[in-house]
Simulated assay, not measured.
Amino acid sequence: MSCPTRRRVLHRGVAGLAGAVLAGPVAAATTPDAFAAPRSTGGTEHAKAHRRPADDEMPEPFDEMYQGRHIEGWPEEGDHGGHGGHGGPHEGMEFVVRIDNDDLHVMRNVDGTWVSLVNHYETFPAPRGVARAAVRELNGADLVPVVTG
């Protein structure tokens, strides 16, 4: 057997590295993520507050004073404001949220979390959290109506 040259060693090393790089995404897609953070099964209050609601759960109605503002919310039959049907278990249902009797537009994400037009970069497990965050964000200002159509 002949002595390997630098060229052969480099060629085999690059070929092996390229194979590993190309095989990485395939292996990651077919095996569980070893680097993922362990998920809580619900032992703490924080984990319970941020669990994903089941698809058939509609949030509980609420009516309270929060930081001097009256916030309330309830499920209601509606047309989703022209969003169209999504075929979910609550087809035709929407959740109304109001701050001081002004409507706050809220939306449910596919993962079950909620967002609003006031605070649309942060998700919340329920509309009550969305309303409270909107009150904090508004900092005393009034809601401006959403003009549609």
Rank of each mutant, 00 (worst) to 15 (best):
M1Q: 04
S2A: 14
C3K: 13
C3F: 13
C3W: 09
C3G: 14
P4F: 00
T5I: 01
T5F: 03
R6V: 10
R8E: 14
H11L: 13
H11R: 14
H11Y: 15
G13E: 00
G13N: 05
L17D: 00
L17V: 11
A18T: 02
A18F: 04
G19M: 06
A20M: 01
A20K: 05
L22Q: 05
L22H: 04
A23V: 02
P25V: 04
V26P: 04
A27E: 05
A29Q: 04
T30Y: 07
T31C: 09
F35K: 13
A36K: 10
A36T: 03
A37W: 13
P38C: 12
P38M: 14
P38S: 07
T41R: 12
G42H: 01
G42F: 01
G43T: 12
G43D: 09
T44W: 04
E45F: 07
K48N: 02
K48A: 04
A49Q: 10
A49G: 02
H50R: 06
R51W: 04
R52Y: 00
R52C: 03
A54L: 10
D55I: 11
D56L: 04
M58I: 13
M58L: 11
P59L: 01
P61V: 06
P61R: 08
F62T: 00
F62P: 10
F62N: 01
E64W: 10
E64R: 10
M65F: 13
Q67D: 15
G68K: 03
G68R: 00
R69N: 02
H70F: 01
I71V: 11
E72S: 07
G73S: 03
W74G: 08
E76I: 04
E77T: 15
G78C: 02
G78A: 05
G78W: 03
D79S: 13
D79Y: 14
H80N: 13
H80Q: 15
G81A: 08
G81H: 11
G82I: 05
H83W: 05
G84Y: 05
G87Y: 02
P89W: 07
P89Q: 06
H90K: 06
E91F: 08
G92W: 03
M93F: 10
E94T: 06
R98M: 13
I99N: 07
I99W: 08
H105T: 15
H105I: 15
H105Y: 10
V106C: 08
V106T: 08
M107E: 13
M107Y: 15
R108K: 14
N109D: 13
G112I: 03
T113Q: 12
V115T: 14
S116N: 07
S116K: 08
S116L: 00
L117F: 05
L117D: 14
L117R: 14
N119M: 08
Y121V: 12
E122L: 10
E122D: 11
E122N: 11
E122R: 14
E122V: 11
T123Q: 10
F124C: 02
P125E: 01
A126R: 15
P127M: 08
P127Y: 02
G129S: 01
V130K: 02
V130N: 08
A133V: 06
A134V: 09
A134N: 01
V135L: 04
R136M: 12
E137S: 13
E137R: 11
N139P: 00
D142F: 07
L143S: 03
P145C: 06
V147W: 12
V147K: 10
T148A: 14
T148I: 12
T148V: 12
